[in-house]
Design a protein around this nucleic acid. Structure first.
Length: 376
RNA sequence: GGUGGGGUUCCCGAGUGGUCAAAGGGAACAGACUGUAAAUCUGUCGGCGACGCCUUCGAAGGUUCAAAUCCUUCCCCCACCA
């Protein structure tokens, strides 16, 4: 495996940084928000939509794609890019989060995780080795190590166990990944994941272990799982100090706009979150003036756009009244329009953040954004 | 005109003497959602000075300690027959 540097730092403002990550399918600007395309598609969005709004990298999920349509099909179709025709970078998550969210139908051992499919109950086994094979077959540009995302709250002992297992598994991921990469033309970039729940000593330990693996990128996992915003910030601020500055640092599963701004202020480069898409499908969108429950009755006769300050093509054309009506009638177009807007909103937020960093005014950008967002 | 069935809280629809303000859906209203078991889930859903009271089950009377449930009359719907 030829080791290449994938991160280029372009500008810093305090701890905040502006950079670029380059992988097989191209580059993406950081800080970046990656829409989540669990089953090979960002729900309700087409590739054209995503390109249009400026998304440069999306996620795919090992667990979901392995179960359906099955790794063989995706591989035979030319990997994810060949399959879903998203020709920009893709990051695949390892299924570590599913170990957390599907804990009631899975069993964790040192060997790996035995789980039942949420589709049909069939039994499967994920080991770090198996996950690497799958992720290589899926063909993403960045693949995540198979980790154990510990639920919140967790005792120090439980969290420590998660840290140990995450490290053991990460080492096994690295071995298998190296082996698989030897025969590949464009091997993916394996990112490690730091765990440790809300315990600083464990975060330190986990970060040092993961960093010692010398991977091209590092992620902070196990946050935004139920802890308070203060705890999240504490852990993030603490953990990121242990992650190398010459590689991308990815905060997994985050978050709300205010969380992203907070994390960027500490130097996080990559984010992903289901909020813009999931919430859009359940009647909520993000706007410059704060979250809007467009499903609620006060939008019934509102001919204004979802966000009065948005220049996305949904806000240029459609009204709250119409989109609410579509939602209430379960017209899929309602979810499509709402999802488009919120995804655009997130991409637009990231554009604003990047530009502000370049112009050394991130702090005021953050302050102004939050003032308007919180209706102050 | 005859025979049979039926009218229940916004809608559909259970309930056939007390444990019924009345099951269950739907609609409506609100809340939740952070590496997507999520076009999902939760709550409210007659009124009120609310551990109690008032109004409600087509209408009006009646039986009973007690009626959405039984009886009488009336109004209206549906099906089939003529």
């Amino acid at each position: 495996m030829t080791k290449q540097k994938i991160y280029t730092l372009k500008h810093t403002e305090g701890r905040t940084r502006r950079g670029e990550v380059t992988v097989s399918h191209g580059s993406f600007q950081t800080p970046a928000f990656m829409p989540v395309g669990t089953a090979g598609a960002v729900k309700a969005m087409t590739c054209e939509d995503l390109e249009e709004m400026g998304a440069e990298i999306i996620l795919g999920n090992t667990y979901h794609l392995y179960l359906r349509p099955g790794t063989e099909i995706v591989k035979a179709q030319g990997g994810l890019a060949g399959f879903n025709r998203w020709h920009k970078p893709t990051l695949t998550d390892s299924g570590g989060y599913q170990v957390f969210s599907l804990k009631h139908i899975s069993k964790i051992t040192d060997e790996g995780v035995q789980f039942q499919s949420h589709h049909d109950g069939s039994r499967h086994m994920f080991t770090p080795e198996r996950v690497m094979e799958i992720e290589h077959d899926l063909g993403g540009d960045i693949i995540m190590a198979f980790d154990q995302c510990v639920p919140y709250p967790a005792t120090h002992e439980q969290a420590a166990e998660g840290v140990k297992r995450t490290y053991d598994w990460a080492k096994r991921c690295v071995s298998t990944h190296r082996l698989l990469s030897e025969t590949e033309e464009n091997p993916p970039n394996l990112f490690g994941i730091v765990q440790g729940s809300v315990y600083k000593d464990l975060r330190t330990e986990s970060a040092e272990q993961i960093v010692s693996l010398d991977l091209p990128g590092n992620a902070i996992g196990g946050l935004s799982v139920g802890e308070s915003k203060d705890e999240m910030e504490d852990m993030l601020a603490h953990t990121i100090e242990h992650l190398p500055k010459d590689r991308p640092r990815y905060l997994m599963g985050v978050g709300y706009p205010e969380d992203i701004l907070m994390a960027v202020s500490y130097g996080i480069d990559m984010f992903d979150c289901v909020l813009p898409t999931r919430n859009a499908r359940t009647g909520n969108v993000f706007t410059s003036e704060g979250p809007l429950v467009y499903r609620n009755a006060d939008c019934a006769n509102d001919d204004g756009p979802l966000d009065p300050n948005c220049d996305c093509r949904v806000c240029q054309r459609y009204s709250r009244a119409y989109i609410r009506h579509l939602y209430n009638q379960s017209e899929i177009t309602g979810m499509v329009l709402a999802s488009y807007h919120s995804c655009y909103f997130y991409q637009n937020l990231m554009r604003g953040i990047r530009q502000a960093i370049e112009e050394d005014r991130f702090d005021s950008f953050r302050k102004d954004f939050l003032a308007r967002y919180n209706g102050e």
